[in-house]
Design a protein around this nucleic acid. Structure first.
Length: 835
RNA sequence: GCGGAAGUGGCGGAAUUGGCAGACGCGCACGCUUGAGGGGCGUGUGGUUAUCCGUGCGGGUUCAAGUCCCGCCUUCCGCACCA
């Protein structure tokens, strides 16, 4: 990019309003941040989580995008071909709620918000390639979300089934397991109900093992996030064991990780929803009471039911089961503490070796039988007040006596497997992803139902299934699609007869599962993305966003990437190579929120101090992954620094314009010149390493501040070296460019450059320039700092030792004592140990 | 209960491999500049000062510990009857 010929008058005081606007407009006009795939440079994909267009930018956004912008600009200057896109996660409930409350159509509300948020983002001076912008709620995007759904369907990874699902009565829709927090809707906190409904699922459980295993391929992810995903997947190894109903011979599979305790089983328990419950009690004396109990449990809220503190309750069904290991007859109970969704929905009760079973058995006077002996001491059964849940040695277990728990787990499972009464089993806590929502503002699921032909995909050529915009909302929250005949009624793609459309839409997390792929080829009207383009850009080298997406978005996106790779659509099996989870922005130690009225508006800060002050403060105040305490004083400090840089360079402006001599020789430098030059190079080194190795923006900025302080000191020198000064100032502007892009660009132009500073290379430091002739080392006596010695750089260990021993301080201290040892750490310190 | 992160001046934070604790910034004090205020430029600023003491607490390893080991405390975050 080249600057226009017109002469700019540089003002004495930094006018951030004019300057920021001037460069934002010029960068946009010149398409400075546009990237293509045909670059000789190595690619780098820098991505920040795209926002939901609420209409207003908040400080979390400012932090997220400031971090991303520094990374993108820095990598560009380091010589990478950087993809840095932005878009909108624009389906979702708030738009619909706005429609119900204020009678604004969701599409209009959404597009208006996008417009105003885009202006706010542009006012921040972020280096996005806006030509790649994606909007998930527009047909040119959701067409491909629907197309991807069909690929999942075709490959058997999307299916419909009836099951007990989480229902939020306030949002009027079902929720995925991941969207239920403590038994309540994560969006509105309404306790969820369990409803038996037919719903669409993605078979993420097919990928459970790979999702778990390949966490190991992500060293660039925070351990915290990997551990959370690991726990969510919840893999366990155990056995399925088949108990049989005494009367009917029907099998009851139970899942356990402690098959070594199978001789300790004194009862079997079923979840209230277990289908066997009804059969067992039908026509017996127990029928009424068990039914009452089941009803009671099902009426409990999800919170109460799943809390570990909830009292364990149960009821005998009147039926008995046979333990396949020893043919023993044990009672079958129904309880509130067995989860139908996990394992087989049935559990073997081993009170002696499981806390929950222990409490349950105590309450209902069920027998407790010890079958695992601690290795160190003998259990005194009479004195036991809690279950022994550790491993040990098997006792009271027939031919298995004497085995350790680990051996027992293997042998018992093998034995049962041989008898056809059980098998080894790996279990996961991860459930399939429920993706259908009974809401309007989402991507319609491209399915039609025909009375003759059944459930059918919409043919790919008929995509997108357009979401109608002129719909009417009812205050109930019911999806208006159900009352929109033109949408609902269609023809069967197979027989041509009358058919109806699926009116459920997809969970918005489906849309955000592949947006990073669409960015690589966002204008493509023939495909979701061209494979070569995706393969060129993927994986995302650096992904940046909030930790609140640790499970849902990040796991769903990983699942999508793996599935798409299996469909042959791309090479990558992981979407995000490196992940940075930024901390929250706090005010007065609390998360900013309307209810606490401690919200600081980015718009106001930008208006008052300019975008760069806001960016600089946020990057300077804390390292990116930590929470950040907002401080108005701190903001003023950043504002001061920016003006300090401006004044410094303004002071030299005339000289710099007239004297364009380049710095070439290190001859004839005064000691102040040498100091300045050393400071300059050590600053480059520090800033480069802080950005390259650690994303420590705060310490990088502090190094630049020290450099500026050094330049102010140099300004006091009588004799100043003009070429050196020019080099130092240009270096300063260059390393500031990722942090303060407008200021740097304006001054870069002012000192006489025609090409944008953002197209310059990142400076290299000169190892030679860092060297000094003398260094300061620490003199310690018994490990305590006593003095500082100035010594030549190339001094030997022996000389340092001699020097140290000859100091007055050491001599004095050593009177009447023995010098036991002298430790020399070259270049750092000498420690004299005196008894 | 389980898992993770953190705890350093009046405040935000630095200390990269065990080697000068407190970089940088805020605040505060003082000086210079200015008609004044603001702003700017500069100096000082952990606590005590004879010296010592200091990184949540108590031990330990080491010539040397904010950093390593053992045992606790507090705060925040995530998960939580998963058999």
């Amino acid at each position: 990019m080249y600057f226009s010929e017109e002469e700019d008058t540089v003002q004495e005081k930094y006018n951030f309003k004019e300057v920021e606007k001037k460069w934002q407009d010029r960068w946009e006009k010149e398409e400075l941040y546009r990237v293509e795939e045909d670059s000789p440079e190595e690619k780098y994909y820098c991505l920040e989580m795209f926002p939901y267009p609420s209409g207003k930018l908040h400080m979390g956004h400012v932090r997220n995008y400031s971090i991303g912008d520094v990374v993108a600009r820095f990598k560009t200057m380091r010589g990478y071909n950087v993809l840095h896109p932005m878009g909108w996660d624009s389906f979702g409930l708030p738009a619909e709620n706005a429609a119900i409350q204020n009678h604004i159509p969701p599409a209009k509300w959404t597009m208006d918000n996008i417009k105003s948020m885009k202006e706010q983002l542009k006012a921040m001076g972020l280096s996005y390639d806006w030509s790649r912008e994606v909007t998930t709620s527009l047909p040119d995007y959701y067409k491909w979300t629907q197309w991807l759904f069909l690929q999942f369907y075709k490959h058997g990874l999307a299916y419909k089934k009836k099951g007990y699902v989480n229902w939020c009565s306030d949002c009027n829709t079902v929720l995925a397991n991941e969207q239920v927090v403590n038994g309540a809707c994560e969006r509105c906190d309404t306790p969820v109900d369990k409803k038996a409904l037919e719903q669409w699922y993605f078979r993420i459980t097919d990928y459970a093992q790979e999702l778990l295993d390949s966490l190991a391929d992500l060293p660039g992810w925070p351990d915290k996030v990997k551990i959370m995903q690991e726990n969510w997947i919840g893999r366990s190894e155990g056995a399925e064991i088949y108990f049989t109903v005494e009367k009917t011979g029907e099998k009851i599979p139970v899942y356990t990780t402690r098959q070594d305790t199978v001789f300790g089983v004194t009862y079997v328990v079923l979840a209230p929803e277990h289908p066997l419950v009804k059969k067992l009690i039908a026509g017996t004396n127990y029928e009424q009471s068990v039914q009452d109990f089941v009803k009671k449990v099902q009426q409990m809220t999800e919170i109460d039911r799943t809390s570990a503190e909830t009292e364990k309750e149960g009821i005998f069904t009147g039926a008995y089961a046979i333990n396949p290991i020893n043919q023993e007859k044990v009672p079958i109970w129904v309880t509130n503490y067995v989860l139908y969704e996990y394992g087989t929905g049935a559990v073997m009760g081993v009170p002696a070796h499981d806390e929950r079973d222990f409490m349950f058995a105590r309450k209902y006077n069920l027998p407790i039988r010890f079958v695992i002996q601690p290795l160190e001491q003998k259990t005194n059964e009479a004195e036991m007040t809690e279950a022994y849940v550790e491993d040990g040695m098997m006792i009271n277990s027939g031919s298995f006596n004497g085995l350790t728990s680990a051996e027992g787990r293997r042998k018992v499972a093998e034995f049962l497997e041989e008898k056809g009464a059980g098998k080894f089993m790996v279990n996961y806590r991860l459930r399939d992803w429920l993706i259908s929502r009974q809401r309007y503002w989402g991507a319609p699921i491209p399915i039609v139902y025909c009375e003759q032909c059944g459930t059918l995909s919409v043919p790919e050529k008929d995509l997108p299934v357009i979401l109608p915009l002129d719909v009417e909302f009812r205050p109930t929250g019911e999806s208006p699609l159900n009352n929109y005949p033109e949408f609902l009624h269609t023809t069967c793609p197979q027989c041509g007869g009358a058919a109806t459309r699926e009116t459920d839409t997809m969970d918005t997390f489906v849309c955000s599962c592949w947006y990073f792929l669409r960015y690589t080829d966002s204008q493509n009207t023939e495909e979701a993305f061209r494979r070569e383009k995706a393969d060129y850009w993927m994986n995302v080298d650096q992904y940046i966003g909030g930790v609140e997406h640790a499970i849902m978005h990040l796991m769903y996106a990983r699942f999508f990437t793996k599935a798409l790779a299996d469909f042959g659509l791309l090479e990558a099996r992981e979407p995000f190579q490196n992940l940075l989870t930024q901390g929250m922005v706090l005010k007065d130690g609390l998360k900013m929120s309307k209810s606490k009225s401690n919200v600081v508006s980015p718009e106001e800060i930008i208006k008052k101090y300019g975008a760069e002050t806001a960016r600089l403060f946020i990057l300077f105040a804390a390292p990116p992954e930590r929470d950040l305490e907002w401080s108005d004083r701190g903001v003023e400090g950043s504002y001061r620094f920016i003006n300090r840089v401006w004044r410094l360079i303004y002071h030299y402006l005339q000289d710099l314009k007239q004297n364009k001599e380049k710095f070439v020789s290190t001859q004839d430098l005064s000691s102040a010149d040498q100091d300045l030059r050393r400071l300059m190079h050590s600053t480059i080194k520090r800033v480069t390493e802080d950005l390259e190795l650690r994303f420590n923006f705060n310490t990088a900025i502090s190094a630049i501040m020290e450099f500026v302080n050094g330049l102010y000191h140099y300004r006091e020198e009588e004799k100043q070296n003009a070429p050196l000064l020019r080099e130092a100032i240009e270096m300063l502007l260059t390393i500031l460019a990722p942090f303060t892009p407008h200021l740097s660009e304006e001054l870069w132009e002012a000192v006489g450059h025609q090409e944008s500073i953002h197209l310059q290379s990142w400076p290299e430091y000169d190892e030679e320039a860092l060297k000094t002739e003398e260094i300061e080392i620490v003199l310690q006596i018994n490990g305590k700092v006593r003095e500082h010695l100035i010594v030549p750089v190339e001094i030997s260990r022996e000389e340092i030792e001699k020097l140290a021993l000859n100091t007055e301080r050491v001599q004095k201290t050593a009177i009447g004592k023995e010098i036991k040892r002298v430790i020399v750490v070259p270049g750092k310190l000498v420690n004299v140990v005196i008894s």
